[in-house]
């Protein structure tokens, strides 16, 4: 028995078995919060991150491998790469989402989600409840077909 192997297997079990399973729980909690008109984005992002656990570790490793192991600037370069990734990859994607939200808000659809008659929210929540498994499969599909973006 080897301590390093034990730690490696623990990490693999947590990242590749438990976290994708817990993602379903996070998604169910997100749907419940959505049905109550509360903030649900946090739990939805947590569900997506749980599915992407292995990829997130690869991202951290790629950030840390931007310089040689004995380069004193390696930690700074890894943080710089993280900042660049957030600024050049995540923020544009977030901006696209904001544009979509702006169009949806302008169309008046989200008014039926938050104020007044909430029948749209209830309808979408019911659809999500009936299709949680499909939503998780959709998230897994996105992540499996997004691995090409991981350097």
């Amino acid at each position: 028995m080897n301590f390093a192997n034990g730690l490696l297997n623990l990490t693999n079990w947590l990242g590749n078995v438990i976290m994708p399973t817990v993602a379903g729980l996070f998604a169910a909690a997100a749907i419940y919060h959505f049905s109550k008109g509360r903030h649900f984005q946090h739990l939805a992002c947590a569900a997506l991150a749980s599915l992407m656990c292995s990829g997130l570790l690869r991202v951290l490793e790629s950030f840390g491998n931007q310089a040689a192991w004995n380069n004193p600037d390696r930690y700074w370069i890894s943080i710089l790469t993280l900042v660049n990734w957030v600024g050049n990859v995540l923020l544009p994607l977030y901006g696209v989402g904001q544009v979509v939200l702006a169009v949806v808000h302008y169309a008046g659809l989200l008014e039926r989600m938050t104020i007044g008659e909430a029948w749209v929210r209830n309808l979408v929540a019911a659809m999500c409840c009936f299709g949680l498994s499909g939503i998780l499969r959709l998230g897994e599909f996105w992540i499996q077909h997004g691995t090409a973006g991981v350097p």
Binding site: T11, N12, G15, F26, C53, L56, L57
Partner: peptide
């Protein structure tokens, strides 16, 4: 050990975020 601990840190970060 520490590169494997990085994986545990990612798992912990996701749990803390949730």
């Amino acid at each position: 050990i520490l590169p494997e601990a990085a994986g545990l840190a990612v798992v912990g970060a996701i749990f803390n975020y949730a």
